[in-house]
Design a protein around this nucleic acid. Structure first.
Lengths: 196, 196
DNA sequence: CCGCTCGGTTAATGAGCGTTAACCCATTTC
DNA sequence: GAAATGGGTTAACGCTCATTAACCGAGCGG
């Protein structure tokens, strides 16, 4: 048994491919046979690793939400400096995630409703905590912002940062680091202008 | 026959409800019986008005893209003033659309791949024209922006403006006019910061 | 009043797909 | 070296669901 050995266990491999496929064609749009084929096994072999198709989606969405939240919490705890620097750090973390895990980011706000009630509630709660974490920081940087405006602006900046997956065109856009810089600047500018 | 009479023909009624349902649960997630039920007829009665489920989605997506593009073109043609004022007008138009037709905006970037090849190509082309229209205006306002950066920033601002549908919470956010103002300011700020 | 078309209805069809059953081989464990 | 177990396989089941068939009543033009 090599389950706990190292990097890419079969389970993780499946999750990765499932994420990609779900993001490309939607949860209902991709069959279990396709997911199997993507990892070299076929069809029902997946059931040795997951209880069902729903379970894969659930694990993906819960995983993303947890990763985002713990990453944010870590930054809040570790960054010592002005609130503005903390906000910088949050933005940077979110951009890294959006650029490196596009499929997951896409899933994150597209397929939430396909979850069982309990899972959906869990994911929603994690998402809400993540938003609130940002809201607090934003309000420290821009005290003039009302709570409602701060929350709305955070959602909007998420929309901005998460927009990268939609850019599928090959050459016509900046490279990874340039893109990260651009997104960072735009997010900061958006927050600054939100507090008119 | 009252097809060309006035406002809410049965066809339009169906399209409206279909848009809502597709946005809520995804194209594959909603059955044809549900759509029928939403307008008071049941199941296959829809086939007196549409060739099939796909045709409804196609008509919706093509309609949105056309509406956005022609609205943008109209503004470009009508607005006389500085490029900055034109950009203001484009932003305002897009915000109105995002706030008033949430389901359509959601569909617009979620369900594109479920279309027949020809329809998808058409929608993509319309979307591209709309983006290019913005890119030109943005570059006039901020000549320092490279074409690639301008395009990326336009996509990102679309992400920002289209983020409203995700805000389903009832009380915790600003009212319609306040929200419009906030989004407008943020979009402008984002563009300004994109041109560092 | 006949007949056509418009907009419905319910029942049947047929494909796709998630899931389960039954079976199998390789590797490890005692 | 037998037995258990992990990770596959293919075939079958059953349900959902888009689409089609067959039928029907209401207006309306002639």
């Amino acid at each position: 048994m090599s389950t706990t050995t190292a990097g890419a266990t079969r389970r993780e491999q499946i999750l990765k491919e499932a994420a990609r496929l779900f993001a490309e064609r939607g949860f209902h749009g991709v069959g279990v046979d396709e997911i199997g084929a993507a990892v070299g096994i076929s069809g029902p072999g997946l059931y040795r690793h997951f209880a069902g198709k729903d379970a894969m989606l659930a694990e993906l969405l819960v995983g993303i939400s947890e990763q985002l939240l713990t990453g944010g919490k870590r930054r809040v705890a570790e960054v010592e400096g002005t609130p503005a620097e903390l906000l910088d750090s949050l933005i940077e973390g979110h951009i890294d995630f959006a650029l490196d895990d596009r499929p997951l980011i896409t899933l994150h706000d597209r397929e939430l409703d396909r979850l069982r009630d309990s899972d959906r509630k869990l994911v929603r709660q994690l998402q809400r905590q993540y938003v609130e974490l940002w809201v607090e920081v934003v309000r420290k940087v821009y005290p003039s912002l009302s709570e409602a405006d701060a929350r709305a602006s955070v959602h909007s900046v998420f929309g901005l940062l998460n927009s990268t997956p939609h850019l599928s065109r090959p050459g016509a856009l900046p490279g990874r680091t340039a893109m990260a810089g651009l997104l960072h600047r735009m997010a900061l500018g958006a927050f600054a202008s939100a507090a008119s």
